[in-house]
Design a protein around this nucleic acid. Structure first.
Length: 223
DNA sequence: GATCTGATTGACT
DNA sequence: GTCAATCAGATCT
C-alpha cells in the first residue's frame, strides 16, 4: 500500500455502507468479517486490521455485559450497528460495534487499523497543537490507529459518540469495501484481559504492520 | 459511602 | 523492559 494523497476522498470512501443485518449476528462471526473493512467518521477513514469479539451476558467473563445490563453498557443491549464507546484507565476511550439483535448484549472491539484518509486530522487529534510535545511529535501513519485507544482517538470517538448509529447514513459508517483475504485472517487469544483470555476471539490480518503488539494481561501494581 | 479494578498508553531507564 | 497516570463504574461493607 503506497502513499495516498489526501486532497480529496479516495475512491474507497464512496463505497456502500454495511447494513444493520451485517451486525445482527454472533460477535465471533462479525469480528473476522470486519477485517479489511473501512470505518469512516467524518474526514477520517480507518481500514480495520485487528478486532476482538465479546460474548453474551453470563457467558463471557471479560465482556462488559457479563453481569447484565447497566447504565454504562446499555448501548450494547440496543440495536446492532451502533457504536459503544467507553472510558477506561482514567484516560482512554475504546470503541465497539454492537452485534446481535436488540437485548442480547454483544459487541466487537475495534483494536487496530490503518488510517487511509484524514491522516493529518487523526494526527492532530492525537497531539493537538499547543500540548506538550504537540506538533513536534512525529507519528508514523502506521502508529496512528495501532491500538484500541489510538484508533478511537484517530476516529474522533469520545463519550459523546456512545450510541452513534453506523447504519443510518450519518457521519459514521462502515463500508462494505473489500473484506480481508480469509487466508490471511488469524484467530488467537484476546489481550489485556485477566479472565477468558484463552478464548480465541481476537482476529487480525496476518503480517499487517498496524496490528497492535500482543501483551499478556499485566496485574495492576499497587503502591 | 468507601474501595477497587480495568478491553491502555506514553514516558522513562 | 518497566512504571506511573487518571477516573468511571461496579462491588463490597
Amino acid at each position: 500500500m503506497g502513499e495516498r494523497q489526501l486532497t480529496g476522498p479516495p475512491p474507497s470512501l464512496a463505497g456502500t455502507a454495511l447494513d444493520r443485518d451485517f451486525f445482527d449476528r454472533p460477535s465471533d462471526q462479525v469480528a473476522p468479517d470486519l477485517l479489511g473493512r473501512v470505518v469512516v467518521h467524518g474526514p477520517v477513514a480507518v481500514r480495520l486490521t485487528e478486532v476482538e469479539a465479546y460474548g453474551e451476558p453470563g457467558q463471557d467473563p471479560p465482556a462488559h455485559t457479563y453481569r447484565g445490563r447497566t447504565p454504562r453498557n446499555a448501548v450494547m443491549f440496543g440495536e446492532p450497528g451502533h457504536v459503544y464507546v467507553y472510558f477506561t484507565y482514567g484516560m482512554h476511550f475504546c470503541a465497539n460495534l454492537v452485534c446481535r439483535p436488540e437485548g442480547v448484549g454483544s459487541a466487537v472491539l475495534m483494536r487496530a487499523g490503518e488510517v487511509i484518509a484524514g491522516a493529518e486530522v487523526a494526527r492532530a487529534r492525537r497531539f493537538p497543537a499547543g500540548t506538550a510535545g504537540g506538533a513536534a511529535k512525529k507519528i508514523s501513519d502506521r502508529d496512528l490507529a495501532r491500538g484500541p485507544a489510538r484508533l478511537a482517538v484517530a476516529l474522533g470517538l469520545e463519550r459523546q459518540h456512545n450510541g452513534l448509529d453506523c447504519c443510518d447514513g450519518g457521519p459514521m459508517r462502515v463500508l462494505a469495501g473489500e473484506p480481508a483475504d480469509p487466508a490471511l485472517i488469524v484467530a488467537g487469544p484476546r489481550t489485556g484481559v485477566s479472565t477468558g483470555a484463552e478464548t480465541p476471539w481476537r482476529f487480525w490480518i496476518d503480517g499487517d504492520p498496524t496490528v497492535s503488539p500482543y501483551r499478556p494481561h499485566a496485574p495492576r501494581r499497587r503502591t
